[in-house]
Structure formats: C-alpha cells, structure tokens
Computed example of a mutant assay.
Amino acid sequence: MPDPNPAALTFLQTRRSRPAKTLGLPVPDRTALMPLLISALRVPDHGKLEPWRLIVLERAALLRLAALVPETGARLGRVSEDIAKQQAQFADAHLAVAVIAAPKPSEKIPLIEQTYSAACVAYGLLSAALAAGWGANWLTGWASHDRGFAEAALGLAPSESIAGFIHVGTETAAPPERPRPNPEAVITWMAG
C-alpha cells in the first residue's frame, strides 16, 4: 500500500516559479543554500554518472557575467533591447546557480539521458528553493547557448553546456496566476 505525502503532492500541484526580476535580498547564505543544492542532486542518474555540476554565482560573479553580455550580443548580431534584457538577468541578480550539463563517456547511457538528468537537477533546485520558502526562477537566455559566453563566463569544457541559471532570492512581488495545461489535451491513456 502507498505511503502518501499529501503536503508534498499539494506543493507539486501548486508550485510556481517567481519572476527573477522580483527576487531581492536577502538571498540564502551558504548554510541555507547547501541543503537545497544537496536536494537538487537527488535526481534520476542512469549509470550513476553524475553528468552535471553546479556553479554558485554570488553578486560579484553575476556582475562579471553581465559585463560579458554586450560583447557576446554584438558578436551574435543581437539588437540592443535583447542585449539589455540578457544583461539585466545577471546585473540585477543577487544569487544564481548555474546548472551545468557535464556528460560523461558511456557506452550504456546515451547523451540525451545525461542531458535530461541535468535538467532534473535544475528543476530539483528550483523546487527545493520554492519549498524552502524562497522565490526562484529557472532562466537560460540566448547568451547561455553561446559557446564563447559559456567558456568565458563559466570556464566550461567543450563537452559541457548550461542547462540553466536558477535564480534564488526573497520574493518582492507575487505575479498573477497563469493558465495551466489542460490535462485532457496533453494526456493520452493507452490500455493496450
């Protein structure tokens, strides 16, 4: 017989990200952040490869990333509005965790499964932060998909990529609820 956890199920059914631009101070210190990071690492990981890693970005590091955005945007031909928006993602933040997909050589575990595992880490961290009472948001953005930015900003190896930046802080404004998927439109039952 199942041993239900109604509080956890209710949390999962009602959780919602908070816009990164609404996250302010204080942010979790290292002691408060560590349990969230540990929770995020409890994900499906076929082959026990640990095909991910985390980089905690404190304020000075976020400002350094923000300073890299204009050159990256110019190189990629991005318009000034796109550059300003991407730069603000880092410049206005106080704490973010970069979730890095770091695949390992494996004959048994396909690259895509390792990438999905990294995405699970990002979602796990997002959920852990929200469950702990913090506001949190998972962002990427065009700069995170640029190889030059990834290497210059975070020192990523050629095989690594950014799965996302999980911004964590104190929620300063609650956004209105947004429409959710219609289960009947996206769920198919197959009995045979």
Rank of each mutant, 00 (worst) to 15 (best):
S144I: 07
A128C: 09
R16W: 01
E184A: 15
G155C: 07
A32S: 09
R30F: 00
A174N: 01
A143M: 09
D92H: 09
A96P: 05
F90A: 06
I83T: 15
L126K: 07
A157D: 01
Q13C: 12
W134T: 06
A84Q: 14
I109N: 01
I83S: 06
R147L: 04
A88P: 04
A32W: 04
D146G: 06
A96Y: 06
L154A: 03
I162M: 08
S159L: 08
F165G: 00
V56H: 07
K108E: 09
P4C: 08
V79D: 12
P51I: 09
A93T: 05
R42V: 02
I187D: 01
R16T: 02
R180Q: 13
G124R: 00
V186S: 10
P181D: 05
E177R: 15
F149I: 15
N5Y: 11
P26I: 10
W142I: 10
A136N: 04
G24S: 11
P181E: 06
Q13E: 12
R180N: 04
V56T: 15
S17N: 04
R178G: 09
S106C: 02
L68Q: 06
W189Q: 13
P183M: 08
L25P: 02
A131E: 11
T172G: 04
S80T: 14
L49Y: 03
A74F: 09
P158R: 01
N5E: 11
D146P: 10
R42C: 04
L154Q: 06
P175N: 06
H94M: 07
L37P: 05
T170S: 15
W189D: 12
C120T: 09
V56R: 11
E58F: 05
A119P: 10
L125V: 13
D82H: 15
T188M: 07
T140H: 02
V69A: 01
G24F: 12
W138L: 11
G47R: 12
A20Q: 13
A185R: 14
R59D: 05
G141K: 04
A136M: 01
D146T: 05
E177S: 12
A129I: 08
I187S: 03
K108W: 03
A84H: 08
S117C: 14
A102D: 15
F165C: 06
L57M: 13
E171F: 00
V121K: 12
L37V: 14
G148S: 10
E50W: 13
K104E: 12
R15A: 10
Q114V: 07
V99C: 03
V97W: 06
P110R: 13
A174T: 13
F149E: 15
A122R: 03
I83E: 04
P158H: 03
G124Y: 02
F90D: 00
